[in-house]
Design a protein around this nucleic acid. Structure first.
Length: 394
DNA sequence: ATACATACC
DNA sequence: AACTGGTATGTAT
């Protein structure tokens, strides 16, 4: 039953270019996918992917047979504990910050030759990331370098400089810590922050504490010869001071302005750009940080309606934790967006494990964690300290 | 309890 | 010639 055309289609869901992420809009997908398939065919990797693909199809088949046996009565009496909505928490301001094409951006910064070339960081076997120029060719993270070279023969591949990325990451984290000392790093280039407390304090800050010189790194501009009155009428422009060299930017007190300021400070300090998402919980903030990438930010206002409007047409695949397998299983049930996920929750509760459908339900309601993990950054060394582990885990 | 699968960067 | 490596969590047996 598995014709050649079918298995090719199947493989595409697994191996093909994933243009889900930023910088991949409007590419010639067919051409790119053919090159990827040609280069992969017959390899150990390919054979393994075919096997896994069959397993997924089997799992979907099992699910569909299970679904066919469900009666309307069973579906209607499925209970979805309605208390979740009551527990919705909109009072926290959660930010997800993500450096743009981090490793590639560091290498480009340190080697101007690379600036206008398609380049990627990694090896012939595996790329860690690519710059936006290379992405126009379909070259992206987690792609083997030799395939990337077929897609883009002029691609420059720079080997990993892990120590360098770690050092830059430390600089970025110093900025994060100014907005949330308990921030949660997810990798060298991204982190979650809870800036609720920062924003409270920020309301009472004079403009001088929110003013930054473009040329000067690190600290707010000197307060002495800087009268706040000077900025009264032009909060969004960059007023230049008489008698002062260099532009000064004043940031406001809103969440958006605080995050703009944080990104500005990161760029001043590292010459690298970051993107950010602002939302009432981690799940939404993560999705938002991808929305205006690179060098942008997006926020969801802390209102139920704003959250639901944002969620409605959001493809489930955009949500962290929904990967290609889950996407394909949901697609088999005609679920592509979060709204569709919500509409089918009763069926899902009968087809998936409790942990899985609880997760789906949370997503469909736009809910997510509102507390960043407990973890403290020591000012001097930026060493993360967690609560003592049980002896068994040490 | 263990192995395997999914997902993330 | 060549498809990461580490961690966390979920699923199947």
């Amino acid at each position: 039953m598995d014709g050649t055309a079918d298995s090719r289609e199947g493989m595409l869901s697994r191996m093909a270019l994933n243009d889900n992420k930023a910088g991949m809009e409007g590419l010639d997908r067919d051409k790119i996918n053919n090159i990827i398939l040609e280069a992969s065919k017959g390899s150990r990797f390919y054979v393994n992917e075919v096997k896994k693909e069959q397993q997924v199809n089997e799992r979907i088949g099992k699910m569909m047979r299970h679904k066919a046996k469900l009666t309307e009565q069973q579906i209607q009496k499925a209970q979805l504990s309605a208390e979740l909505e009551m527990g919705r928490e909109l009072g926290r301001v959660i930010v997800h910050v993500d450096m743009d094409a981090f490793y590639a951006a560091v290498e480009m910064r340190d080697c101007p030759e690379l600036k206008d070339k398609p380049m990627a960081v990694g090896s012939m076997s595996m790329l860690s990331t690519s710059n936006y120029h290379a992405r126009r060719y379909g070259v992206r993270a987690a792609m083997p370098g030799f395939i990337a070279k077929k897609l883009c023969p002029n691609l420059v591949i720079v080997p990993l400089n892990f120590d360098k990325y770690t050092a830059v990451s430390e600089q970025v984290r110093e900025v994060f810590a100014a907005y949330d000392p308990h921030f949660l790093p997810m990798s060298l280039d991204e982190a979650y922050l809870d800036i609720t407390e920062h924003l409270h304090e920020r309301q009472h800050w004079p403009e001088s504490m929110r003013s930054y010189k473009s040329c000067d790194n690190e600290v707010p501009v000197e307060t002495d010869n800087l009268s706040p009155v000077l900025f009264e009428d032009s909060p969004s422009s960059s007023p230049s001071l008489p008698g002062s060299d260099g532009k000064v930017e004043v940031f406001g007190t809103s969440p958006e302005e605080a995050v703009r300021e944080m990104r500005f400070r990161i760029e001043q300090k590292t010459s690298l750009t970051a993107s950010a998402g602002i939302a009432p919980n981690m799940m939404l903030a993560k999705v938002c940080s991808d929305k205006n990438k690179p060098n942008g930010q997006y926020s969801i206002l802390p209102e139920r309606q704003a959250v639901m409007d944002f969620i409605r047409d959001l493809p489930v695949r955009k949500v962290s934790g929904i990967g290609k397998v889950t996407e394909k299983m949901l697609a088999a049930l005609d679920i592509f967006t979060c709204a569709q996920l919500g509409q089918q929750m009763r069926v899902l509760s009968l087809l998936f494990s409790e942990t899985s459908w609880h997760h789906f339900l949370q997503i469909s309601l736009g809910l997510g964690s509102t507390r960043i993990e407990r973890c403290v950054t020591l000012p001097a060394l930026s060493i993360r300290v967690t609560e003592p582990l049980p002896l068994s885990e040490m």
